[in-house]
Amino acid sequence: MIKVNRGLRSVFKTLSICAVLAAPLAACGPLQMPLEDRTGNDQWLDTQIKSGILGEFSKVDHTYLLDVNVDIWKQNVMVTGLVDSKGKYYDVMSLVRQDNRIKTVYDHLVIADQETIDAYHRAEDEYGKNAVPADSATQSVSDVWIESQIKALLLAEKGVSSVNYRWQSVQNIVYIMGEAQTDEELNKVLSIVRRIKGVAKVVSHISLA
């Protein structure tokens, strides 16, 4: 069963999942979203792939929908999150890789013991309510807060098209993918993310157009 005490992050993720799963039913052809540097066909195909993966997650184990993040850009898939066993890890990755339309899978799914995962969720719930915690060597910054900072800062930055990027913060490590139009834009994006309070490391799968 899905745990219901995982805070704002889970609420937002659940709403996002519902929107993705509903998308194929709400449209009958390629979507046109001109602000993104993807063709309408790429956008439609990415939506189909993601909804298919999430649909399989919902059939096999509903907790995958909350514990595993799936981000897609031009049929390249980035998998992040935490699972509590090798069995679940192999299960998730098998479900992801079964779609032969996927070009590349960036596998950043972490296996952790259940105690670590539970502690992570409790910290996210607590720090998510209080935004960024006070400076302390024993406290980590909320991943929800980091993700919100990335969104706000990239959106505000001139010369950066934030709609062309997908990101997740897991245990203060930021995983980001997408497409930059120039080397200058790529460097801007990575510099902005690295300067955010609490970010321990940035793993980039950003390509150049």
Rank of each mutant, 00 (worst) to 15 (best):
K3D: 15
R6V: 05
R6F: 11
V11C: 07
T14R: 14
L15D: 08
S16Y: 14
I17A: 07
C18P: 00
V20R: 12
A22L: 15
L25E: 12
A27D: 11
G29N: 06
G29T: 04
P30R: 05
P34D: 12
L35I: 10
E36A: 13
D37C: 03
G40E: 03
G40F: 02
D42G: 02
D42F: 05
D42I: 00
Q43I: 15
D46K: 06
Q48A: 09
S51C: 08
S51K: 07
K59V: 11
V60S: 07
H62N: 09
L66P: 01
V68P: 09
V70S: 09
D71C: 00
I72A: 13
I72G: 04
K74M: 10
Q75V: 06
D84C: 02
S85M: 03
K86Y: 07
K88I: 00
D91H: 05
M93F: 04
L95F: 00
L95V: 00
N100Q: 08
K103D: 09
T104H: 12
T104K: 08
H108W: 02
L109V: 00
V110F: 01
T116V: 11
A119Y: 06
E124K: 05
G128V: 10
K129R: 12
K129A: 10
A131Y: 14
P133L: 04
S136H: 11
T138L: 15
Q139M: 13
S140D: 14
S140Q: 11
S140E: 13
V144L: 15
W145I: 01
I146A: 06
E147V: 04
S148K: 10
Q149S: 12
L153I: 00
L155N: 12
A156V: 01
A156E: 10
E157F: 02
K158A: 13
S161E: 12
N164D: 15
V170I: 15
Q171S: 13
V174F: 12
Y175Q: 07
M177Y: 02
Q181C: 02
E184Q: 12
E185I: 02
L190D: 06
S191F: 04
I192A: 03
R194I: 02
G198T: 04
V199I: 09
S204T: 10
L208M: 07
A209P: 03
